[in-house]
Design a protein around this nucleic acid. Structure first.
Lengths: 333, 333
DNA sequence: TCTGCTTCTGTGAACGTGCACAGTAGCGCA
DNA sequence: TGCGCTACTGTGCACGTTCACAGAAGCAGA
């Protein structure tokens, strides 16, 4: 690789000093039109590109942001939540010439690596994805005072770490209301893990609508996977064979619930109505297609990035953003 | 943020010089056990972490690798090919303390940004994903002589850019043979885009088995999306209503083909057998479940990363790696 | 003419490393 | 004693920037 031109080369080619070139680069004021033009021309001629390492060394800014994925699950990226957020983040950050580093934080070793990375000053900000309640990594990041935002609230840190999220609670209410309006009387629910905001708030929304009719017997917990949806549905059927509807907190778990119901000989939606959540791609391909709640994933991602950039740019504290969901009626309910 | 300790601080705390600390850090020989211990202790006490920017400045190594995603498609990350590769890359690179930056290269602006990034010396290597034939970006990267490998061959650059890939051609043969063995006589195919290795080679494998029976009439092209599978299937049915099997070059397109077949009143597999490719998650959830070809995605990803690291570590040229596929028989064929 | 202000430019120092080099101490051997 | 070798240590410089500062040039006003 031929030696790359430095700011010195550009200065020489333009017949000015390093300082002037630097000023043009960081578009400072106080540069004469003539000098400005000469520098621009010299940059083009030499093919000069700033060395970010050298710049970072003095500015203490890296021009990159790290996204931390706490989900240890194998298929994280296939989850549209992640997929959309990653893509949006890369795009929006890229527009500002900020690059995105992705790190996994599935186990303690990973988390330690993340902390070391951030403590090493290699990122200007942190974008937290699906961080678990009580994760010590969050405390460490917090203590470093590095700009951090979460995509979806961090349970227990809602007032400390700003976030953008879909209105899980209201979405759950929308679905539950829909089931009630369809004349369903015995409505069960399969929740997500209770240390995730989606797990907690979708259950709360469910309970908001049903009140005391949301008895313990009608609640089962899953872990977002299809398999967990299958087994949770089986447990519900065993305990309450006469249920006539179930609100499942994710489409993937709902797909699992559908197969259990089919295996048990229940017709959907005739015998049992099924409502999902996410409006992910599986929702359209199940049989019957899932009635579900659409999350404004792209908007949530956009907002998350916007918050982070605002934080990095040194604006003061920023407020969480919560975006509305929408009921999508298909055939399962 | 409190000022971070530098190598000077560590040297002072350990009562040695910068040079000795540096030697301990890069575990050079020639440092006495006493000095080594003192430095280790000082590092722990001060909480010292090397500043990679400063290090990069002198070593010309960044400790990071950039993955370039050329697929402009919206859902890239949901594709298991990407998902698995990204996850594997992050994990394997992370083990060596190399971080992964992800960049999109969907349009010209993106590609220019990638070139600028690499030319700026911000990455030690490039990991190409689904690069299109004739992409000028590849030529530019090539001219910079930066270590680069592809996950899946780059069409037209097979001898220039090392890669790891599944044996697409043999996989297509396996499926086509299977269809023949099932007694199918009129076998059609829906291929991927003909500027991708999967598009080309899966068609070649199909033709390998059928020979002259693989007539033009029985070939349609899709673009990997479900929708394109639907319409390609429709065109095939119109042209050759009596076909009794179709090999679809991806599961997602196969899912599309299935809905078209169902809408046309054909029973699968009774009237028409359908074979997919990828063994992605949709394969198991279609009706009927797809008979498909499993690609060793994880192994391909592992090998891709291994090749890149070998290239970066300065070993000479490396050879492409091609890994075997496997027929997964379900119900659609 | 002097002073003060604005606009513009160049220079030296600093950021935190790694590396080449010089140098020291100890030891064995002729 | 002198020489060469090994094991170890410290120092100066370079990497490519930005930033603070010093100054120059031009102009207006007293």
């Amino acid at each position: 690789m031929a030696k790359r031109p430095t700011i010195h080369d550009v200065a020489a080619a333009a017949g000015v000093s390093r300082g002037t070139v630097s000023r043009v680069l960081n578009d400072d004021r106080y540069v004469s039109p003539a000098a400005h033009a000469a520098v621009r021309r010299a940059i083009a001629e030499t093919g000069y590109i700033v060395n970010r390492n050298a710049r970072s060394l003095v500015t203490q800014r890296t021009g990159s942001v790290v996204m931390v994925l706490s989900e240890p699950h194998e298929k994280v990226f296939e989850d549209p939540n992640y997929s959309t957020t990653i893509r949006t983040a890369i795009r929006r950050l890229g527009e500002r010439d900020v690059s995105l580093v992705i790190m996994l934080a599935g186990d303690d070793g990973d988390r330690e690596r993340v902390v070391r990375y951030v403590r090493g000053g290699h990122a200007d900000g942190v974008l937290l994805m699906s961080t678990h309640a009580g994760d010590p990594m969050v405390d460490e990041l917090e203590s470093m005072r590095i700009p951090a935002v979460a995509c979806g609230a961090v349970v227990g840190k809602e007032n400390v770490i700003p976030y953008a999220a879909a209105d899980d609670r209201e979405g759950a209410r929308q679905m539950t209301r829909h089931l009630v309006e369809q004349g369903r009387r015995k409505i069960a629910t399969i929740t997500g893990p209770m240390d995730t905001p989606g797990g907690i708030q979708r259950l709360e929304g469910f309970a908001d609508v049903l009140g005391r009719k949301a008895s313990r017997k009608l609640i089962e917990h899953g872990d977002w996977t299809q398999l967990s949806g299958e087994s949770a549905m089986a447990r519900l059927l065993e305990r309450t064979p006469d249920l006539d509807a179930v609100f499942v907190a994710s489409d993937l778990m709902a797909a699992g619930a559908l197969s259990t119901l089919r295996a048990a000989g229940r017709r959907v939606p005739d015998d049992v109505a099924v409502g999902g959540f996410d409006d992910s791609s599986v929702a359209a391909t199940t049989h019957p297609p899932l009635t579900t709640i659409r999350q404004p994933l792209a908007e949530v991602a956009e907002e998350t990035v916007r918050l982070l950039l605002a934080l990095i740019d040194g604006g003061g504290p920023v407020d969480p953003v919560i975006l509305p969901t929408r009921l999508i009626v298909r055939e399962s309910a």
